[in-house]
Write a protein that binds this DNA or RNA. Structure first.
Lengths: 139, 139
DNA sequence: GCTAATCCATACTAATCTTATATAGATTTA
DNA sequence: TAAATCTATATAAGATTAGTATGGATTAGC
């Protein structure tokens, strides 16, 4: 039960943008150096962030990426839901039809409740909570 | 971010044993039929459950498997920790040395807190909570 | 117009993990 | 003696992950 690096990197990218938002659009190359993530992989990760309206971009020279929302408005929950193919702990939580017993399955309800508790926590943690501190560029 | 089937099956096995604890030792063949898990796979899954002292076994004819603890004493948290190779959401939570920035990384602390909240919930959910209901043998 | 930059799509791959199944027995006890 | 657990290891198919590679199209500052 492990978060994908995409979620972890996604969080780091947004924290990086939040930290550097005073200096105008932030270029992928800069993020790449600071976060040690390849430019090409960053391109892949930023795309969904843009689709989700968490990031906007400026094209052309001096262009780059900017947070589209205030850091207080972006939560880890949003990021994780965006990047995890399956955001529930078990499939039958969101797709009860995958299991013939789902109707009155106590175990399913337990996985569902645990998933909910987890996301309550993630949803209440924002980029703003994470951007302070002594340059924790990692994880 | 998905639980392995081993955790899910582990929970189902223990619930099955709890439900059938009045009829003496429960044989792997019976569990296999009820839970639709192969005998050989069940053997693999029961071994760690025994090592963790959640199940005891009786050998020989009429033998089988019995819960070693009361259902109220076995939690989903124990099961998940037992079966998930990595029980934290991200590696650096338990192994900060994996990341050079772990010392004062805010993001790491957030993943740690989310992991903790999740396990608080799993630890407070017991097999006893799951064994009632209309035969939910699945998930 | 040149160039720095984002944007887009897709393909490939290496490695790892998952989910079993298979094989071949040793041991225990009704 | 036979039903059952126990042990250990090997194999394999499939999925997923984490990236890299390829090859460009587009935008806009200078």
């Amino acid at each position: 039960m492990k978060l994908s690096t995409r979620s972890r990197y996604g969080a780091r990218i947004l924290v990086d943008l939040a930290r550097n938002k005073d200096q105008g659009p932030v270029q992928i190359g800069e993020i790449s150096k600071r976060q040690d993530i390849s430019v090409k992989y960053l391109e892949q990760l930023i795309r969904p962030l843009k689709k989700a309206n968490l990031v906007t971009s400026v094209r052309g020279p001096k262009g780059g990426h900017i947070l589209a929302e205030k850091p207080e408005k972006i939560s880890l929950g949003q990021i994780v839901r965006l990047f995890e193919g399956q955001s529930d702990l078990v499939e039958c939580v969101s797709f009860p039809e995958k299991c013939p017993m789902s109707d009155d399955c106590q175990v399913r309800l337990a996985w569902r409740d645990a998933t909910e508790v987890l996301y309550e926590k993630l949803d209440s943690t924002t980029i703003s909570d994470l951007m302070n501190g002594n340059k924790p560029e990692d994880d």
